[in-house]
């Protein structure tokens, strides 16, 4: 059976509440119930944007502060499970791609995206010096490369689009 990295809605510390969702990022068998006991809890995700400490809504409106969504995740463990074939759900895919763990599903390609992803990568995911040198030689980011290969394999026109963007 397939292992999935997905979100499981859990009761908040004060008990289950409507309109206040909070999730565990879990590794579970694909066909088990969403909130059942998972194989592993990899982190948490709070989808409600919260004010940073010491700021008010007014500060947000005036641009002094930005709201934030807190995500805690064991990056090394998530990377391991991805490596052995666990399949992330769409939401988890989107979250993990924010820190450069996966290729983003829906993002414009090109050097700008590559740079942005590199900036947020955790040290465990920075490629070793050898591979880094190799990728420099091609002067093309991992994401762009992968998409190009996929496009070529499909015989689709995306490859021309990528070239056009560059």
């Amino acid at each position: 059976m397939v292992l999935r990295l997905r979100l499981a809605r859990v009761a908040t510390p004060g008990g289950a509440r409507r309109h206040a969702p909070i999730y565990n990022i879990v590794l579970a068998q694909a066909r088990t119930a969403r909130d059942s006991l998972p194989l592993e809890v990899l982190g948490t995700y709070n989808p409600i944007p919260t004010l940073p400490e010491g700021f008010s809504e007014k500060d947000v409106k005036e641009g002094k502060a930005r709201k934030q969504k807190d995500i805690k995740v064991d990056v090394a463990r998530a990377k391991y499970w991805l490596g052995v074939g666990a399949q992330p759900s769409n939401t988890v895919w989107r979250l993990l791609s924010l820190i450069g763990l996966l290729e983003p599903k829906y993002l414009p390609t090109g050097p700008q995206t590559e740079k942005a992803l590199k900036a947020v990568r955790f040290p465990t995911h920075v490629p070793s010096s050898k591979t880094a040198a190799g990728s420099e030689a091609t002067e093309e980011g991992v994401v762009t490369q992968a998409i190009r290969e996929a496009a070529v394999a499909k015989g689709c026109l995306i490859s021309t689009m990528v070239r056009y963007q560059e």
Binding site: A11, I22, V41, L42, G43, T44, Q68, K69, A76, F122
Partner: peptide, 27 residues
């Protein structure tokens, strides 16, 4: 519209019974 704050944690704190008190994640 908002920032995503990522915090790298260790999932190993759950212990052998999976119920460690200082583990991250709702139990």
């Amino acid at each position: 519209r908002w920032d995503f704050n990522f915090q790298d944690i260790s999932a190993e704190k759950v212990g052998k019974d999976g119920r460690g008190r200082d583990a991250i994640g709702f139990r």
